[in-house]
Design a protein around this nucleic acid. Structure first.
Length: 346
DNA sequence: GACACGTGGGG
DNA sequence: TCCCCAAGTGT
C-alpha cells in the first residue's frame, strides 16, 4: 500500500466523529475550517455549534450585524476571522447569488480564505484534488520523508505543497486530506508521537534516524513586546460607564473601556495628569482607585499586556452613555471579559 | 519576507 | 514557570 492508501485506511478506522464530518454543505465546511485555523478542535467545537444555530444559512450570516458575529466569536481569538467570515458571507450573497463558489480558484477569492482553506473546501466539498498543507501535514511529511527545509520558509512552503500535491489521492482528495491531518493530530503528534502503533513505522525516515524531535524544522522566534494598558472603568453620577470600539490593531472592532497606553507602568499621580485622562472629565472631583487584581500579564502570542484597571467615580455624566447591562451585549476581548467577571463578583 | 493577529492546553 | 503550539491569512 502506498502512503495515501495506508493513511486513508488508518483514518477510516480511527477518525473522530466531528459534526462537520457529517455534512458536505460547503457553508458548514467553510465555517469549520475558519474556526479551526490555529485553533484546537476542543476549543472550536462550541463555537461551531453556536454559529450553525444562530446562522443556519449563508444568508442568515450575511444579514447579521457585525457586532452580533463578533459577540459569538468572543473568546476564540484572531477576530479578523469573524470579520472576514461575515464579509465573505455578504460577498457570496451579493456576488454569487447565495451559491457557495465551487472551485479552488473561486473559493480562494473569499477574504480570510488562503491556500489551506481553499484546498480543504475544494477537496472535501467538490472533489477537487488540491492538497492541504497545514501544521499537521508539515509535521507528517517532514518526519516521514526526512525533509529538513524549514516549514516557515518560502522554499519550505513551496516544497511541502508540491510534495503534498504529488501524494494526494485524486480519486478521493477530500478523504485523503482529512486523513493526513487527522493522522498528524492523533498519531504523529508534535510531542510523544505514537510511533509504536503507527501504521507507517516501518518506513518512516525520522523514526529510523531517531530525528522525530528535530522535525519539522522551524526558523525564527518572534520577540515578545511588553505593553502597558490603563483602563478607566468609569462610574458616572448616574452609574453609567463608557466603552469604546477599538479602531486599529489588536481586537479591531471589539469594545473596551477608555484606554491610556503607556511605554512603562504608571501610578495614580501619573495617570491623573495624563492628557487623555483629563480630556474625559470636566469635574475635578474624582475618586480614582486601582482595582486590585493579579499582576499576571495577558499573554498573546506576540505581546504581553500588563493591565491596570482604574475605577474612576465622577460627578460627570456627559459622554458616559453605557449602562452596565448594555455592555454585556458588546463583543469584548478576553482581557475585558475576565475583568468584568471578577469585578462583578466583588 | 517579516510581522501582526488571541486564546488556552500540555509537557 | 515557561515555552510550544493549534485544521493560517493579510499586509
Amino acid at each position: 500500500m502506498n502512503f495515501s492508501k495506508q493513511l486513508i485506511y488508518w483514518y477510516l478506522i480511527n477518525k473522530r466523529d466531528l459534526p462537520w464530518r457529517t455534512t458536505d454543505n460547503p457553508y458548514y465546511i467553510w465555517l469549520s475550517e475558519i474556526i479551526l485555523q490555529q485553533t484546537r478542535v476542543d476549543q472550536g467545537m462550541a463555537y461551531y455549534f453556536k454559529f450553525v444555530e444562530n446562522f443556519p444559512t449563508i444568508k442568515d450570516l450575511a444579514d447579521a450585524q457585525e457586532e452580533h458575529v463578533l459577540k459569538l466569536w468572543q473568546g476564540l481569538g484572531y477576530y479578523s476571522r469573524a470579520r472576514y467570515l461575515h464579509f465573505s458571507a455578504k460577498y457570496i450573497v451579493n456576488e454569487h447569488n447565495c451559491i457557495f463558489p465551487s472551485s479552488y480558484n473561486t473559493i480562494l477569492k473569499l477574504k480570510g480564505v488562503g491556500d489551506y482553506t481553499a484546498s480543504a473546501i475544494a477537496s472535501i466539498c467538490f472533489n477537487e484534488p488540491t492538497a492541504v498543507v497545514d501544521g499537521n501535514v508539515y509535521r507528517v511529511l517532514s518526519r516521514y520523508f526526512g525533509i529538513f527545509t524549514p516549514i516557515n520558509s518560502t522554499n519550505g512552503i513551496k516544497e511541502f505543497k508540491k510534495l503534498a500535491q504529488q501524494l494526494i489521492d485524486v480519486k478521493k482528495p477530500g478523504i485523503h486530506n482529512q486523513a493526513v491531518m487527522e493522522f498528524g493530530a492523533r498519531m504523529c503528534k508534535p510531542q510523544n508521537p505514537d510511533c509504536n502503533n503507527c501504521p507507517l513505522n516501518d518506513s518512516c525516515f525520522a523514526l529510523s534516524k531517531n530525528s522525530i524531535k528535530e522535525l519539522p524544522v522551524k526558523v525564527k522566534k518572534l520577540k515578545i513586546k511588553n505593553r502597558y494598558f490603563n483602563y478607566l472603568v468609569i462610574h458616572s453620577k448616574s452609574n453609567t460607564t463608557k466603552m469604546v470600539k477599538r479602531e486599529k490593531g489588536i481586537w479591531l472592532n471589539l469594545y473596551e473601556f477608555p484606554l491610556i497606553e503607556t511605554s512603562e507602568p504608571i501610578d495614580k499621580n501619573q495617570l491623573i495628569k495624563h492628557e487623555i485622562f483629563n480630556d474625559l472629565f470636566d469635574s475635578k472631583e474624582l475618586n480614582v482607585k486601582l482595582f486590585t487584581r493579579e499582576e499576571k500579564p495577558h499573554k498573546l502570542s506576540h505581546q504581553h499586556i500588563f493591565t491596570k484597571f482604574w475605577i474612576v467615580k465622577t460627578r460627570d455624566s456627559k459622554n458616559f452613555n453605557n449602562s452596565w447591562d448594555d455592555i454585556e451585549k458588546l463583543p469584548v476581548p478576553a482581557l475585558i471579559d475576565n475583568f468584568l467577571t471578577q469585578y462583578k463578583s466583588n
